[in-house]
């Protein structure tokens, strides 16, 4: 009896896995995810860049944030300091490993900060500015080949392997020639499309690719969108003292 069940389960497993294996012929799914993480995570160098985040909402004025981001992905360190608007200047977000703090220069108080939180009521999340960790958090649920504009792409549907990532499932359009993500759709736990991310341009710096323009469209609230532009990219070493709470306090004086 047990043997028969095992055989049936085995057959179900084989036939269940067949579509993905068949569809992925010629494409190593793990290699694609690994490449995306490799491009988006700067393991050998520190990273500094200026970000402009323009957020548009129906019936509201455009909000524009200028921020400088410091990253040391090899040590899971991330720091974002707001430069504009003047009213928010000096606000900062520091993430070291699993612990994150936000700093308010007005009250001089730190609060708990999480990468999965939304950045300043925009459509961007703090994690959009940090390194990519698709392999750690997602598994490929389905795969197909397709076309996006003039590019041949792989379309991967990813399901979260843990319940702490912001989006339980996500769909990515990856260029077949260099594995760069061109488009991403993020879905809620109830499987509603929440946002679409379009990345039309990347800047190449050595082995790294940095998205220099990202458009995030809110699919729940019509007309709401956020555009992220990256400038002044640098891979120069950042002093250790930068990734520190006291730096956040000091930088505002």
């Amino acid at each position: 009896m047990n043997g028969r069940i095992l055989i049936i389960l085995g057959l179900i497993g084989i036939f269940g896995a067949l579509p993905i294996v068949a569809q992925s012929s010629g494409a190593d799914l793990d290699a694609i995810l690994a490449s995306i993480d490799e491009f988006g995570t700067f393991q050998d160098n520190d990273f500094t860049a200026d970000y402009t985040i323009v957020s548009e909402k129906p019936g509201e004025e455009r909000s524009i944030f200028e921020a400088r981001i410091f990253r040391r992905d090899s040590e899971d360190k991330f720091l974002l300091i707001i430069a504009e608007p003047a009213l928010r200047r000096g606000e900062g977000y520091l993430q070291v490993g699993d612990t994150g703090w936000s700093y308010d220069p007005e009250s001089r108080e730190f609060a708990i900060f999480q990468l999965r939180d939304t950045f300043q009521d925009s459509d961007a999340q703090n994690s959009d500015f940090a390194g990519t960790r698709l392999q750690d958090n997602y598994a490929v649920a389905s795969f197909e080949e397709g076309r996006l504009g003039s590019f041949e792409v792989y379309i991967l549907t990813l399901e979260a392997t843990n319940d702490t990532v912001a989006y339980p499932s996500t769909k990515i359009w990856v260029r077949q020639d260099n594995y760069l993500i061109l488009k991403q759709e993020d879905y809620s736990l109830s499987d509603r499309l929440m946002r679409t991310v379009l990345i039309p341009t990347y800047a190449r710096a050595g082995a790294y690719f940095v998205p220099t323009k990202t458009l995030i469209i809110d699919n729940l609230n019509q007309g709401e969108r956020t555009e992220v532009t990256v400038r002044n990219i640098s891979f120069a070493a950042i002093p250790d003292t930068v990734f520190n709470r006291s730096y956040l306090e000091r930088v505002n004086r």
């Binding site: 702490t164 912001a166 989006y167 339980p168 809620s188 736990l189 109830s190 929440m194």
Partner: peptide
């Protein structure tokens, strides 16, 4: 429609 986070921080819509 409501947009929220689950107890573990996942995005959800209902």
């Amino acid at each position: 429609t409501v947009r929220l986070s689950t107890v573990t921080g996942q995005q959800n819509v209902g």
